[in-house]
Amino acid sequence: MSTAAAAVPSTPAADDAKRPGRAKMEVRALSAAFGSNQVVRAIDLDIEARRVLAIIGPSGCGKSTFVRCLNRMHEITLGATVTGQVLLDGEDLYGRGVDPVLLRRRVGMVFQKPNPFPTMSIKENVLAGLRLTGTLGGTDAARVVESALTSAALWDEVKDRLDAPGGSLSGGQQQRLCIARALAVEPEVLLMDEPCSALDPIATARIEDLIHVLRERYTIVIVTHNMQQAARASDTTAFFLHGELVECSPTERLFTHPRDRRTEDYITGKFG
């Protein structure tokens, strides 16, 4: 197990530390479907290293499916298919011999609804990813827990009750616990699918503040329904519609002067 893990570059920022802004992931002609229902259509998109990419679009536009293709979560669903390429540091995720489980260590994910293991302790929740991939090995568990919880801006709030169940935390804390769990395996890319939609404004502000800090070390893709959140938290914003990428622009540009009329209509609320 440990040898397989060693084949995967494990330090998130080692490679791209000096080159923020280069393409960490390159998506080429990516299409995805559930059976005959095509939900993502021929997307070409570069995801820049150590930047925050927000993906916006109406319900059913394929934005969640798109990010689930970025760590091969989409194919878990029965009848789901993917065509095209997703390159991570130039290597195709869908190439032969790529282990999806190890890939998901490099490309972590945080979901809409905070989903810690409710009866498992806070500490064990953080370590769950490492235990699942059998990569905890001889590493100092206590240090991993402290480091991940600190990175997720939760350490100070839980350091005295690491053995309390994950379910005892508030919604916002649970979401940060999930972020800590994702960070514990030292991913390079963090995918966040509507991470704040179940949170109140204060908890949302904490997550957004955290995103600003995390972007120093990780490449982040955040799917959000909340346009203001995309405007606040991201460097680049992509607008999806009917499974297609309509526009991908610097966030400030997209929200003040979008290039495409459809983007303008969507973000100003002119859709029926």
């Binding site: 346009m227 405007a231 997209l254 929200f255 003040t256 002067h257 973000i267 100003t268």
Partner: peptide, 8 residues
């Protein structure tokens, strides 16, 4: 919280 053309 106007955006795009509305913000301008």
């Amino acid at each position: 919280q106007p955006l795009a053309g509305d913000l301008r």
